[in-house]
């Protein structure tokens, strides 16, 4: 945990150099973890892409408390408005095995922070970093890419289908969907 803290503080300090607004200390939503993750299994040269994970992701996605917090925040920040309860709407399905921008928790954290070109808003500065991780952990539970005991067992509201815990363990297939803009002629 401490290294993460130091890393994130370092990130804040570094980021602050570029920022006009100086009151970053009082605003925890600007703090940001900095995991090294790739979007593809392919790399230039041998050995695959360079990735470096602190282990924070595991801490979140194996923890029932974080996942259930994430479930609450998923609705709170209107993710469900665009992704429904994981089945998708204007945004793609998140409970399936196909991931445009990577299905590891670190990828998902980046997706939430930075947004994605075809209509995924950037939530940087809007959601505190630890909550982004909690939401990402919950999203990992939708396709049951988290341990069964950690996955939510039931929803309080209208049941949209079997609870995460009752779903079979999932897998992650990267690059499974063609972003609509790729279909654009010209």
């Amino acid at each position: 945990m401490r290294t993460v803290l130091i890393l994130s503080l370092a990130a804040v300090v570094l980021a602050a150099c570029e920022r006009e607004d100086r009151d970053y200390r009082s605003n925890p939503v600007t703090a940001e973890t900095n995991e090294k993750i790739a979007l593809v299994p392919l790399s230039a040269g041998p050995g695959g892409p360079t990735e470096q994970r602190s282990g924070l992701g595991k801490d979140y996605e194996e923890n029932a408390y974080h996942i259930s917090q994430g479930q609450r925040l998923y609705t709170w920040f209107n993710c469900n408005g665009c992704h429904a309860n994981g089945g998708g709407d204007s945004g793609p399905a998140l409970m399936d095995d196909r991931w445009i921008y990577g299905g590891q928790i670190e990828n998902i954290v980046q997706t939430i922070r930075e947004g994605r070109p075809n209509g995924m808003p950037s939530f940087r500065g809007k959601i505190p970093d630890d909550q982004i991780w909690q939401i990402a952990a919950y999203i990992r539970s939708m396709g049951r890419n988290v341990p069964k005991p950690a996955a939510p067992s039931r929803k309080d509201d209208m049941s949209p289908g079997p609870a995460e815990q009752r779903r079979p363990p999932g897998e992650v297939i990267d690059g499974g969907q063609i972003p609509p803009s790729a279909q654009m002629p010209q």
Binding site: N85, G86, G87, G88, P92, M95, R98, P160, G161
Partner: peptide, 13 residues
């Protein structure tokens, strides 16, 4: 058209 997941009955509102 959006490759939605039919396991979620609330998908597409």
């Amino acid at each position: 058209s959006g490759d939605l997941d039919p396991r979620d009955s609330s998908a597409a509102k």
